[in-house]
């Protein structure tokens, strides 16, 4: 049996879910026996190749994220939403009750810490934020979700291990369903 390919992606989130992923510690060796991790955030910048499983952390907050998640959906056989931001939009979605302009002004213009010249940064290289933050399932088909902020390392390992052994995980059954 050929090894499966895994990738992890970081969209609009705090990277806490990736921290939690790292907390599977030595069990990463069990994963490595069954799969190659072909792409991770920070460590490489290459384009996402075709993969069997992709774990996506974070919500869709910008046009760039939207473009990325649509591409990921094409490349991955199984798309797993990792963590509350990806599943519910969580903290990143807390700006949804406000106008985008209000959000920018609060952060860059009216904040106490800003000096008088405070202005909303406007550079072509910067992400273009979308009006509303949405969880992954509102824009693409998601095959599995792992809620939690962040999800437990045990939970992440359980899900990965089940998928790698061609089984469908069931969080409720193993009492690993948790939000927040």
């Amino acid at each position: 049996m050929s090894k499966k390919k895994i990738a992890t992606i970081w969209l609009g989130g705090c990277s806490g879910c990736h921290m939690s992923l790292l907390d599977i510690d030595e069990r990463i060796l069990d994963v490595a026996k069954l799969a190659d991790i072909v792409k991770c955030p920070i460590v490489d910048g290459k384009d996402l190749p075709e993969v069997d499983i992709v774990l996506v952390e974070g919500s869709v907050t910008s046009d760039e994220h939207l473009r990325e998640i649509l591409h990921i959906r094409k490349q991955a056989k199984a798309l797993v939403a990792l963590g509350d931001c990806a599943v519910t939009s969580n903290i990143t979605g807390m700006r949804n009750y406000f106008d985008l302009k209000e959000v920018f002004d609060t952060a860059y213009v009216n904040a106490v810490s800003n000096d008088k010249e405070g202005s909303v940064p406007d550079h072509p290289e910067l992400l273009k934020l979308r009006d509303k933050v949405v969880p992954l399932q509102e824009v693409v088909k998601v095959d599995f979700v792992i809620p939690g902020c962040p999800p437990d390392a045990d939970t992440i390992f359980y899900v990965l291990f089940e998928f790698l052994n061609d089984r469908i995980p069931n969080l409720s059954e193993v009492k690993k369903l948790r939000y927040g």
Partner: peptide, 25 residues
């Protein structure tokens, strides 16, 4: 937003979600 809620972990609504096997909305 469970992660910033004071009741996180002690909330009847969370428990309801677990009991109804609600993994996402």
């Amino acid at each position: 937003v469970c992660s910033v809620c004071v009741a996180n972990g002690k909330c009847d609504l969370q428990k309801l979600g677990y009991k109804t096997e609600m993994d996402h909305i």
